[in-house]
């Protein structure tokens, strides 16, 4: 079972990597996030491949995909959908918006108003939307990959902490390494491959994988280790308050997915360490720059022993 999951994972990663060159770690984390059933926030500068990653993931997994460009005049109805009067049927008919897709790329989420943001975030949390008094289920699986630009903050509405918490992970792609960049520059636009990409996993397999994630074993000593990590973030004077229990559960869920991707049916401390920074960094209220949050997380991992 676990061998099969490993093969599927490799197949998906190969496909995504053919489009997004030299970003294996980020791709793995993004995939782990999807396995764990969580939403992903990608924070980076324009032109770093945020959209490419989302598109490639959608194609490689075979999900229905839309992209919504968030602007300041975007309204909730624009993403959820509206009811339009049909004269032939003499009734209102619901026209689903872009949210009714399995993978939604919410581009520049911080550019829209809080009203629209919260409509999206409600959908993310509940897996359903309420339109005109009627609750409509969103397709399963339902993933949101949101991006935001950390620079040029003028005219933006930064997500509050409570809404940042809805995202399982926050990733940064960063510049490609020189070899990958040379490859990217010398060949044709990798995005052209997107159209012809076959999916690497069937919907049934994906559902099985997600089921398997929840069955990955977590031993008592690992739980103990994770708890000590969380405790450390709370007792340290460097941050105002530490990781919440929900954050701890998010770490564990991601670590399970990470272990499954490595072909294991149990979590080891290295799994936790691999996902700890992407899961926790955006949940830490650290003033004075993002680097401090990441330094603090590194310090936590270096200080708390696994035994």
């Amino acid at each position: 079972m676990s061998k099969a999951s490993q093969q599927i994972t490799e197949a998906i990663i190969d496909r995504v990597e053919s489009v997004l060159v030299g970003k294996q770690h980020a791709v793995r984390l993004a995939l782990a996030c999807l396995y764990a059933g969580g939403h992903l926030l990608i924070e980076d500068l324009p032109g770093m491949g945020k959209t490419t990653l989302a598109q490639a993931l959608a194609a490689a997994i075979g999900l229905s995909y839309t992209r919504v460009q968030f602007t300041s005049d975007l309204l909730p109805a624009d993403i959820i959908g509206v009811s339009v009067y049909d004269r032939n049927k003499a009734a209102f008919e619901f026209h689903p918006g872009p949210l009714f897709n399995q993978l939604v790329l919410a581009d520049e989420i911080n550019r829209t108003t809080p009203k629209t943001q919260s409509a999206l975030l409600e959908a993310m949390a509940e897996g359903q939307v309420s339109v005109e008094g009627e609750t409509r289920q969103l397709p399963q699986p339902f993933y949101v990959i949101a991006t935001q630009n950390p620079l040029s903050q003028s005219g933006t509405f930064p997500l509050p902490e409570s809404q940042l918490d809805r995202f399982l992970m926050r990733l940064r792609l960063g510049y490609p390494d020189p070899e990958a960049e040379r490859q990217l520059l010398s060949g044709a636009d990798p995005r052209s491959k997107l159209a012809s990409m076959s999916r690497g996993v069937t919907p049934l397999q994906l559902a099985t994988l997600q089921e398997e994630v929840s069955q990955v074993k977590v031993s008592a000593s690992l739980v103990d280790y994770l708890q000590r990590l969380l405790q450390f973030t709370r007792n340290s004077g460097d941050v105002d308050y530490g990781i919440s229990p929900r954050g701890g559960m998010a770490v564990l869920k991601s670590a399970r997915a990470w272990a499954l991707m490595a072909g294991r049916d149990y979590v080891i401390p290295e799994d936790i360490q691999a996902v700890f920074a992407p899961v926790c960094a955006h949940r830490l209220p650290v003033s004075g720059g993002e680097h401090r949050a990441e330094n603090f997380i590194q310090q936590t991992l270096n200080s708390v022993d696994i035994i």
């Binding site: 401390p269 270096n302 200080s303 708390v304 022993d305």
Partner: peptide, 9 residues
């Protein structure tokens, strides 16, 4: 072994 270093690392 560094503090916090897992057995595999």
């Amino acid at each position: 072994r560094k503090p916090g270093e897992g057995p595999r690392d």
